[in-house]
Write a protein that binds this DNA or RNA. Structure first.
Lengths: 408, 408
DNA sequence: CTGTTAGCGCATTCAT
DNA sequence: ATGAATGCGCTAACAG
């Protein structure tokens, strides 16, 4: 039925082993032989059997990319950039892919990126991790904020440890990386970090990080040195700080905050940055209204109403992300309030549509494409991890038309 | 190193075959035995080896979902909905997943949806199809418009045929399904279509197919009748017609069209619908300006400028999709033209952000979520295909604030 | 109902 | 440089 390695071998007049060697290119093969084999592959339109290959080689060419919401461009951009790098398939030290790569022949180079939509559900996250473990995935990228709560963090850390032990490369992108700290490291003697790598446009925002903790018990596995997880954290705190500082500089004091879902690392970090800026400018954060809800437009609408109810004199609203900010704008408009004349509004992420909103949204730009591509290269082992296996992706304040000085 | 089936068998005091049987649940096993096995699985934290399973069973639990642009919510919504259904894992006749499903145990039910980003490139599309074929994917969903051109259409049809022959279920979602027509059908005597199924707003309740299903039989090995591809086509033509008719009814005659990328089925269909409406109302399509470009905001801006240059008296611009429409609005605003007072603008798709644009966009709503979920169910074999293996997903005109009667 | 016996298709030692 | 075995972990026929 389907053509196998043996068929190709027969056609080329060689052994199956030789065909395998030609296809994988990890072994010396006479040029003439290689050519004959490749021709046979082509003529028979042979396509390797992935599962068989994975079974024999104990490693598949699948790479998982977990996202919270695939319909959200935030994750789409991240995942798309990562997938491009993963499919490009440069291995360690930029090794070009094996013979026949690029062309849809027997053994194209590059790996298959599996984008998994968790919907923000911890259970789904664990399920996908298990599914990926079961496929013996070559790597896994976890994107976006994580659900906070020790039991879930521990469960994820456990699964990641299992994956790592299995040889799966792990990259945390846009996650604070708390899970990473509980994963048994391969080289526990190396200090985890401090002065970790930094990437991005240097803003002016304070990128504060609480000291990284070491794993409790250095449990060196019996096997070979497994690479530890790499963390690409977003500077949510710094970005939020800069954004709120911008509003304060404009003269705003009565600022409301439309936060993201509760118990999410991203939510907490952004809120912390916001409050830190408030406090630094003599505004008591406790006296300011805050709402919580999902990263959706509808919640933004509700949040605006709620915040306004708690402080009718609000002159500015900071939203946890651009999507929420758009909802806030809509609700404000509906109540006859102009943006930014009556109320200033700001978002976070700088997604493509934000510049098109009316007025164009003041926000904090995250280099999502770059970060996703970086994560992709890291998970492929195409690039050396940053010092301390951790880097901070900086956020850049982007001032547009939705913020202005308060009236009067 | 990693725990295998044999380990579990030993722990439970049974044979490997028995463990396999309880895990797959397709075979009678004594309750007491099953319980012991499950306990062993749990204690050992056993996780099946996907590749090995796929090799032995000649079918993997991967399902591919090809999209043109993962960063575009259009595809994100489609893919997310499909993935949810695929992960749910109801097999034929809604069979609940096997033992231990849901929990991150040995063998969770459901399959792994692989979202592949082709970037609209025919080459990438073929590469992914090959990759999926190599993984012996259980199914493949192709979404979005296809590149037109006989050679590529033929190449895709060829790959799909190969996949189908291998037992991979194929679903075309949002594609006209030209490829399907060139794929060797299993039952060629059946007329491909005519009076095909219809799904959509105007149809009222979502169509359901209570069709009788055969009792669970082993997968057809060998030359058994392979199910042909199923096509879920979007009514791009009808939607575009309705939209332009709306503009004409408002009194517009000088209408410009910002079309999508050339040689794309979606582009062609929407343009055809637009022109048909024009012609039906006595406006010569040939006399109206049309621009072509990618589904991006930037192109929308350029298109507005170009269309205006070709007809400064334009009173309305129809865009191929919402993203382009937003760009058009931005460019218009920049030139001091108000929407809709000076120029009306309309989009297509009704993506979530369209209602937030200022003014809210008049567009054509496509039930993306429903269509994606439907495709997911079809590819899982959880639902019988529509009659003729083809259905039309209807589009609904959604009038909002960006369109109004022309001035004067 | 359950154990035994064969492979699935390929990568890898070993030989040569 | 190449061919001949061996086994990866699991499922599927066959017994019993």
């Amino acid at each position: 039925m389907t053509v196998t390695l043996a068929d190709v071998a027969a056609r080329a007049g060689v052994s199956a082993a030789t065909v395998s060697r030609v296809l994988n290119g990890n072994y010396p093969v006479a040029d003439s032989t290689r050519e004959r084999v490749l021709r046979a592959v082509d003529e028979l339109e042979y396509v390797v059997n992935g599962p068989a290959r994975a079974l024999a080689a104990a490693t598949s060419d699948l790479v998982g990319v977990l996202v919270n919401d695939i319909a959200d461009p935030f994750f789409g951009i991240l995942a798309g950039a990562a997938q491009t790098e993963i499919a490009r398939g440069a291995g360690p030290s930029g090794t070009p892919a094996p013979a026949g790569s690029g062309t849809p022949s027997g053994h194209p180079g590059g790996k298959l990126a599996v984008v998994c939509n968790t919907g923000g559900s911890p259970a789904a996250e664990l399920t996908y991790l298990t599914l990926l473990q079961r496929q013996r995935a070559a790597g896994v990228i976890l994107t976006g904020g994580a659900v906070e709560g020790t039991e879930h963090t521990a469960a994820v850390a456990d699964r990641l440890a299992r994956l790592a032990a299995q040889g799966t490369r792990i990259v945390l992108c846009g996650r604070p990386g708390v899970e990473a700290e509980s994963i048994p490291r391969a080289r526990p003697e190396e200090a985890p970090t401090r002065g970790a790598g930094v990437f991005g446009a240097s803003g002016g925002a304070p990128a504060s990080w609480p000291g990284a903790r070491r794993p409790r018990t250095p449990a060196p596995r019996g096997g070979e040195p497994v690479p530890g997880p790499v963390t690409l954290a977003f500077d949510n705190r710094g970005g939020a700080y800069a954004l709120t500082a911008h509003l304060l500089a404009l003269g705003h004091r009565r600022i409301g905050y439309a936060a993201g879902p509760v118990d999410r690392t991203t939510t907490r970090e952004r809120l912390e940055g916001h409050r830190a800026a408030l406090a630094a400018h003599g505004v008591d954060p406790a006296g300011r209204p805050t709402a919580h809800g999902p990263y959706e437009r509808g919640y933004g609408c509700r949040a605006a109403v709620e915040l306004l109810a708690r402080d009718p004199g609000l002159t500015a609203v900071v939203a946890a992300n651009d999507t929420i900010a758009l909802g806030v704008c809509a609700a404000l408009r509906e109540r006859g309030l102009r943006v930014p004349e009556d109320v200033s509004v700001a978002g976070f992420d700088d997604l493509p549509f934000s510049v098109d909103a009316a007025p164009a949204l003041t926000t904090v730009r995250l280099p999502l494409h770059e970060a996703g591509a970086w994560a992709g290269r890291l998970v492929m082992g195409a690039e050396a991890p940053p010092p301390g296996d951790r880097a901070l992706v900086e956020a850049a304040l982007t001032v547009r038309a939705s913020t202005a000085p308060p009236r009067g």
